[in-house]
Design a protein around this nucleic acid. Sequence first.
DNA 1: TGCTTAATTTAGCTGATACTAAAATAACAA
DNA 2: TTGTTATTTTAGTATCAGCTAAATTAAGCA
Lengths: 110, 110
Amino acid sequence: MSIFAALADPTRRGIVESLARGALSSGEIAERFDISASAISQHLKVLREAQVVRVRAEAQRRIYELDPHGVAELSRWVEELKGFWAPRFDALEAELRKPAGRPRKRRKEK
Amino acid sequence: MSIFAALADPTRRGIVESLARGALSSGEIAERFDISASAISQHLKVLREAQVVRVRAEAQRRIYELDPHGVAELSRWVEELKGFWAPRFDALEAELRKPAGRPRKRRKEK
DNA sequence: TGCTTAATTTAGCTGATACTAAAATAACAA
DNA sequence: TTGTTATTTTAGTATCAGCTAAATTAAGCA
């Protein structure tokens, strides 16, 4: 599964954001969310397989932390995207300073 | 929908990568993929709503291009993640230079 | 040996997502 | 007008993702 698919789920992004502050056990992660430990474990599996996080065992506990591979891969993809833009960068900078740009609903857009 | 959910789908990432090279009409995008123009249009809608792309009309054509808002948002999230790591950055750099780190299947891992 | 704690795996349900085909919208051209 | 081209929207279907509950694995401790 791609790193983007792994990060598509808000709970999984929450886990990643938690781990950015430091390593946590599976149980400590589960405490922070209102879903079962089982569900958390399944999310952690997805994140592991996408190399967004990695585990080490410590007695019965599994300690999770961010995996540099996944973050580096994500970073590379984004940087490459921005790279193609380089020639047009000034225009974009200006663009970003404009008001808000929230999805202006023209017709009725359900 | 979050920008990550929008980028979770491989076809949508392909569209974004195509648009990184420059603006394209809906039809030109559809040519590049083996799915119906309808499916592409639905993908474009998801990307539009996540502000990953934006459209302008040109006669009957809809010209799509990357939307700086979405890319900036994505970039910010990733940079922030890396930011938390800053203190530990040397260790990570070393980590990234190691062999491969593909998911080594220990037990039987379906 | 059990019992407890920590975590994962499996099974099954439900809702969301990606697709096609067909209908609708819209601009241009004869 | 009527037809053609470009695109979107709607309807319907099939597959997938995320959840809970229950079973399983595994380490530590009495």
